[in-house]
């Protein structure tokens, strides 16, 4: 099980626009991520890293190529099926924590019970475990405006793990944090990924975080290079 491939991309390309103003953002990207791996994707802005993350996250469809998550072919799915996959198999951590302003910490996590149609008993246990692991158990009744930036991002991490996803996708999770708190957040993602045996892909431009990752891909002008 340890070496099972969770995510596999084969020759993924993405082209925006029509014939006249064709803009090729991604060219023939192939990569794979195994269970327990924490992979970073770095590149300058405009390099296509967010587009790639959107495609992996079933938010965008590729123009060409094949994409498998848990052996399901994402590239040929309808919007509705993609929705299902996001609800069941993917955990998102966004650039800003993107919490719902009128829900407290516990309710933010409980929301995923409804969205991902989780078992309530099991979800309650998972909420308790995540709040403890991420040091949020004393803040569970706090609302987002009462939390610091780092705490908000920790809630977002907990939320990403709620649906017991196959893969965690993080879009610049440290962008709104100072480097010390940013590093703490990335460490937490790394710890959770390892202890729960998940796969994770993090888009970042912060090179100081890369030592926490197992592998690093570099993307530039739509081409992918692996750096070791």
């Amino acid at each position: 099980m340890m070496n099972k491939e969770i995510l596999k991309l084969e020759n993924i390309s993405k082209v925006f626009g029509d014939g006249n103003t064709e803009n090729r953002v991604l060219s023939n990207i192939s990569l794979s991520i195994k269970r327990g791996e924490f992979v970073a994707l770095v590149g300058p802005s405009g390099s296509g890293k967010s587009t790639l993350l959107s495609i992996i996250g079933a938010l965008l469809s590729p123009s060409d190529g094949q994409l498998f998550l848990d052996n399901q072919a994402l590239h040929s799915m309808t919007k509705k099926q993609q929705n299902q996959v996001r609800a069941k198999n993917i955990g998102f951590i966004f650039q800003a924590s993107n919490l719902i302003s009128y829900l407290n910490v516990r309710e933010q996590l409980n929301l995923m019970v409804a969205i991902s149609r989780l078992d309530k008993e099991e979800a309650k246990k998972r909420i308790d475990a995540l709040l403890r692991d991420l040091g949020l158990h004393q803040k569970e009744h706090h609302y987002p405006k009462e939390l610091s930036g780092g705490e908000k991002q920790r809630v977002a991490i907990a939320r990403a793990f709620m649906n017991n996803p196959s893969i965690i996708l993080a879009d610049e999770p440290t962008a709104s944090l100072d480097s010390k708190r940013g590093r703490q957040v990335v460490e937490m993602i790394a710890t959770e990924v390892q202890s729960r045996n998940k796969a994770a892909l993090m888009v970042t431009h912060d090179e100081r975080m890369l030592d926490l990752c197992d592998r690093v891909y570099h993307i530039e002008d739509g081409y992918l290079i692996e750096r070791c």
């Binding site: 509705k80 996001r86 609800a87 998102f92 409804a114 969205i115 991902s116």
Partner: peptide
């Protein structure tokens, strides 16, 4: 924006 997040998390239009 907030509803976009909910959709990204997997909430359906019906929800």
């Amino acid at each position: 924006h907030q509803l976009g997040i909910l959709k990204a998390l997997g909430a359906t239009t019906v929800d």
